[in-house]
Simulated assay, not measured.
Amino acid sequence: MKDPVTVGVDGSPESRAAVAWGAQEASLRQVPLRLVHVIDWPISPAVPRLGRETAGRWADETLTEALGEVRRRHPHLEITARCLSGRPAAALAVEAADVGLLVLGSRGLGSLVGFLVGAVGTATLVATDTPVVLVRVADEPKHADPTPYGEIVVGVDTHDAPDKVLAFAFEEAARRGCALRAIHGWKLPPAYRSFPFIDSYDERAAGRSAAQLLDELLLPWRHEFPSVSVDQTAFMGSAGGQLVQAAAGADLVVVGRHLRRSPLGAHLGPVAHAVLHHATAPVAVIAHD
């Protein structure tokens, strides 16, 4: 069986948006959709009246509602639902071990503050090697009439460009028949910071070199996916802000994160962090060595 798309379901508006996006993705991939609800057990002391039986009944109702909505919109899609018990992040990470994609909701905090990934989302991200997509409520697709897909945006580090990130981005663009925009932010070598003035020629030369490296990196992927139209941008500065801006009209933003086996240290780099908390489009986080 092909690797399914799995969606974490908790009944919230963010979860419903994730279910809608995940169902559409499963349909595109022609794979089954798996809906998973995790009862956080033992129940928090903050809600002492919520017992196992009540929590189980609410979970069943939540999954039944999500199942009904997906079947109405995607009648030919193979769908299963599972209710688990345990700590949500750990349970979702285990569930993601045999799937192709895990989809979660992300809560909005306003245009200035951005989006809250939340403890469960963050813990799940760093506990699994499976690609994870965070979906915003505003991005729930409209189902009245099919519309052309927007572009896929991918952040590219030319000095540490894992194949997993580019493969995911190109495959998603090919599935949708849409364009791919590759964004790379570069910086001058640290030695230049010691000088109060930088020759503009050196800066332009560094820019040309960065653009050439990006072009060379993307060339084999262009050959492998000839149907995908690629627009590439290399600029001086951090890629985080540019990716957030590009997300405004995108179907999906793809970023990478380094796998860290140690519990110590940051598990998300500054670019991935900025995109996760401020991009308005769904964000795919691809773990890599």
Rank of each mutant, 00 (worst) to 15 (best):
P162H: 13
M1R: 11
E151I: 00
S111P: 08
L63C: 05
F197D: 10
D289W: 08
V38M: 07
L33H: 08
S209N: 09
F225K: 03
A169E: 03
L213D: 12
H37S: 11
S229T: 15
A191T: 13
H76C: 08
D98H: 13
E172T: 09
V228P: 01
A246I: 01
D139F: 09
T6Y: 02
L268K: 03
A90Q: 14
E95Q: 14
H288P: 04
V132S: 08
V103E: 04
A90V: 10
R72D: 11
A173W: 07
K142V: 13
G249Y: 09
G155R: 03
A93S: 15
S227P: 00
E69S: 14
A20L: 14
G22R: 02
E78D: 15
M236W: 05
R222P: 03
L50E: 10
D163Q: 15
A284L: 11
R175F: 11
V120K: 01
R57C: 02
A169R: 02
Y192D: 08
A266G: 06
V154M: 00
F195G: 01
G265F: 12
V117M: 09
L166I: 09
H277L: 06
H277Q: 11
G51H: 11
A211M: 08
D145F: 11
G68M: 04
L243V: 06
V94W: 10
L104G: 00
L217D: 00
V165Y: 00
T233H: 13
M1D: 10
P162D: 14
S238D: 15
G269I: 10
A26T: 02
A169V: 07
G240S: 11
A167F: 06
V132Q: 06
F115I: 13
P146S: 11
F197P: 00
V135Y: 04
A248Q: 14
A119H: 12
A46R: 12
I183F: 00
V36N: 05
A169M: 08
R71K: 14
A59F: 02
L214Y: 02
D251R: 13
V5A: 07
A66E: 03
R222C: 09
A167G: 06
V7A: 09
V253F: 02
E171D: 15
R222V: 13
Q24K: 14
L101H: 03
L84M: 13
R261K: 10
P220N: 08
L104W: 01
L104H: 01
L116S: 12
L243D: 01
A248W: 03
L112H: 09
R82P: 00
L218G: 05
L92I: 08
G177E: 05
L112T: 13
E203C: 02
H273E: 15
A179M: 01
A138R: 15
L67G: 11
A123C: 04
G114E: 04
Q245V: 11
G68I: 04
D202G: 00
L63H: 04
H273K: 06
G22M: 04
G51F: 05
L166E: 01
T233A: 11
S209R: 13
P196R: 06
D145K: 12
A119Y: 01
R49K: 10
I198P: 07
G207S: 15
V94Q: 15
L219R: 13
V255F: 00
A169N: 08
V31N: 03
G86I: 03
R136S: 06
D202P: 00
H76Y: 10
D40L: 02
L84P: 05
D10P: 07
R193D: 15
P148T: 03
S106R: 14
D129K: 12
L264A: 14
L217M: 12
T147E: 14
